[in-house]
Amino acid sequence: MDLAESKIVERVIYQPGICGIEGMPTRLHFFHAHPPIMLCAHWHAQIEVNYVMRGSVHYRMAGHDLRLGAGQMCIFWGGQPHRMDASSDDSIYAGAHLPLVHFFRMRLPPAISAMLMGGATMLTSETDCADDRNFPRWRNWANSGDEVKAQHAVEELLLRVERMFMEPYTIVSTDMECKSESASVSPSFGVVRMCDFIAANFLEEIDAVDIAAAAGLHPKYAMNLFRKSTGMTLIKYVTLLRLSRAQAMLINGNDSVLQVAMDSGFGSVSAFNKAFRQIAGMPPSDFRRNVRAAAAGG
């Protein structure tokens, strides 16, 4: 997590980092800290799990706002631009960012996966003191350097998220209609294999044929399976991973937009500009200038 000192509010703020979730969007990240506010929205290609242990936070999502208080837990798709714009002075939260390869290992109701990928947030207040102990422990074990402990932390977290849907929870969204076709489709091992291959190669020149071959599937079947399981195409997911890395490079480095495009896996600067506009609502150069001006108090 990259922090910067804001000259406006004299408190720490969050900035996307090249060594963080944006710069490495295929890694599993655990966290346990005071959540700093964000001066701008960010995005990353992981499912985010947040558990507020103390205080309160407020999120602005792509389609809805969300306030979380102590003892509440939520999950949402980080591929939508989102921003934590308020965090109480005493707030502490814990959780993780789950790449799709981990997310699709869980036994969630297919309709839940569809709504999450469509932009909904799932919220529960069914938490207890065990969560207060477990979330920090999972983070410590994941960063301990002990592979057995780290794997155990992941398995326990996945089971905890599964349990969320066995107890009362709320769906928070401005659009309750499920737009994805995945309400009747359970992700298969083929989707996991595709996610594995994409995670290892998204900065290279890969296409749907390469991804399908790596999973031992026919290209047309692979594309249809992935779309029904995630609500997006294979290429859209690859593009999102590249855009996640690109935003961190734009903020934290001084490379030209062309160099950022090339280093993020885009074949041309025009393709990069078009994709970036679609998610950020502005060209990469404007995004970089606006974020840096906000951080500097301009």
Rank of each mutant, 00 (worst) to 15 (best):
Ile21Thr: 05
Cys178Thr: 12
Arg289Ser: 09
Glu48Cys: 02
Trp141Asn: 10
Ala248Cys: 03
Asp146Phe: 13
His102Thr: 05
Ile92Gln: 02
Asp286Tyr: 13
Pro25Gln: 07
Ile47Asp: 01
Ile112Met: 13
Ala111Ser: 08
Pro81Gly: 01
Ser56Asn: 06
Arg227Ile: 06
Thr230Asn: 07
Cys19Pro: 14
Arg67Leu: 05
Asp175Val: 14
Thr127Tyr: 11
Val185Gly: 02
Gly231Leu: 00
Met106Thr: 10
Thr239Ala: 07
Met53Leu: 11
Glu156Cys: 15
Leu39Thr: 15
Ser125Gly: 11
Tyr59Ser: 00
Ser188Met: 04
Thr174Tyr: 15
Glu147Gly: 03
Thr127Val: 04
Arg67Ile: 04
Lys220Cys: 09
Met24Pro: 10
Met53Ser: 11
Gly95Asn: 07
Leu66Val: 02
Val12His: 12
Val12Cys: 15
Pro110Gly: 05
Pro36Lys: 04
Glu162Ala: 12
Trp43Gln: 07
Val291Ser: 00
Met122Arg: 10
Phe30Trp: 07
Leu158Gly: 06
Arg160Tyr: 07
Ala296Leu: 14
Gln72Arg: 12
Ile171Phe: 09
Ala200Arg: 15
Ala94Asn: 07
Met176Glu: 14
Pro284Met: 05
Met61Cys: 02
Leu116Thr: 01
Met282Thr: 04
Met61Val: 00
Arg54Met: 07
Ala183Thr: 14
Ala212Trp: 04
Leu241Arg: 04
Ala41Tyr: 02
Phe272Met: 06
Ile198Asp: 02
Trp77Asn: 05
Cys19Gly: 12
Arg289Ile: 15
Gln15Arg: 15
Trp138Met: 03
Val291His: 01
Ala86Glu: 15
Leu66Ala: 08
Gly20Gln: 04
Ser184Glu: 12
Arg137Thr: 04
Ser264Ala: 13
Val172Cys: 12
Thr26Met: 10
Gly281Glu: 06
Ala120Cys: 11
Ser244Ile: 04
His218Asn: 09
Asn134Ser: 15
Phe266Pro: 01
Met223Val: 08
Phe197Lys: 13
Arg288Cys: 01
Thr26Leu: 13
Ala120Met: 03
Leu258Glu: 13
Lys274Phe: 06
Gly297Gln: 12
Trp141Arg: 13
Ala246Glu: 04
Phe197Asn: 13
Val101Gln: 09
Thr239Pro: 12
Ala280Pro: 02
Asn224His: 09
Glu205Phe: 11
Pro16Asn: 06
Gln72Trp: 10
Met38Tyr: 04
Ala153Asn: 11
Asp146Ile: 00
Gly78Ile: 01
Val291Arg: 00
Phe31Gln: 01
